[in-house]
């Protein structure tokens, strides 16, 4: 436990407090988009604008989660491996358990920060009405709903080259954000792309969070899709590790 706490302190400093790219891309950029699209480029009645502010808050929360996962987390894991830090940690008596626990906690903290900032903006600037219960529920659902993204990030961080990871992160982040309907309504996309979009965990998370903002009951189907993605990603990660271990265990005795 002491190791986990120490590792968490260490990771919070380097990955959040002293990490300008994270602060900019995961916090400031979604916040900037939110202000731009809800205060500057918006039209309609007061009630429509209020509804849009709530919906767009959710979109930017999900967008921030995608950025934190595919850019922040994946890059961090790859960098730690490439620099030899993971190897060095694995040589210690504690091994890598505390490290992975701490990284998961950091990722959760990033979620808390980005979600919290969006609440502040939505309520402070646009007078979106949210109860404490709704905010807590949004936070909890975000933390669970981002799990598939977390596992996929761990998977893509396995690529060897930094440049390749950057390409993969870009190729994932923006198309996923678009087909999940985070930037504009899904109905503006071709029918086949709508089908793809609706099967994305990020679309389903967005949908779930919107239900919470609208004070409606959440859809079981949304959870089913998110959990299916989590299971698929976990199985893929297990197969990857097993293949790697088998490859390494070709020991001739």
């Amino acid at each position: 436990m002491r190791s986990l706490v120490q590792q968490f302190k260490f990771d919070v400093h380097r990955e959040i407090l002293r990490n300008l790219p994270f602060l900019f891309f995961s916090l400031l950029m979604p916040a900037g988009f939110y202000i731009l699209f809800t205060k500057v480029m918006v039209s309609g009645t007061q009630s429509e604008m209020q509804q849009f502010s709530g919906r767009y808050m959710v979109s930017m929360i999900v967008y921030s989660l995608i950025i934190s996962a595919f850019f922040g987390l994946a890059a961090l894991l790859q960098r730690d491996r490439r620099s030899g830090y993971l190897t060095r940690l694995s040589q210690t008596p504690v091994g890598l358990k505390a490290y992975y626990g701490s990284i998961a906690m950091c990722f959760m903290l990033m979620t808390v920060l980005s979600t919290g900032l969006m609440f502040v903006l939505a309520i402070g600037l646009n007078h979106v009405t949210l109860s404490i219960g709704q905010m807590l529920l949004i936070l909890i659902v975000s933390l669970i709903g981002e799990l598939p993204l977390f596992v996929i990030s761990v998977l893509i961080s396995r690529v060897q080259r930094e440049e390749t990871l950057s390409v993969i992160s870009n190729l994932l982040t923006f198309p996923v954000a678009i087909v999940s309907g985070l930037w504009w309504p899904l109905t503006m996309l071709p029918k086949w792309l709508q089908v793809v979009g609706k099967s994305m965990p990020t679309y389903r998370l967005n949908h779930l969070l919107n239900d919470i903002v609208a004070d409606q009951s959440v859809s079981v189907y949304d959870w089913l899709v998110i959990m299916s993605w989590l299971v698929i990603a976990l199985v893929a990660a297990m197969i990857w590790n097993l293949t790697l271990r088998r490859w390494q265990q070709g020991v001739t005795e």
Partner: peptide
């Protein structure tokens, strides 16, 4: 066991003391 890897532990955003203190807590 103590081991010095072939590559360097070039972690951005971390000071020399912080890195050494971080690793030492495992022993």
């Amino acid at each position: 066991i103590g081991a010095m890897p072939q590559g360097d532990l070039k972690l951005p955003g971390v000071t020399v003391r912080e890195l050494l203190a971080n690793l030492s807590t495992s022993y």
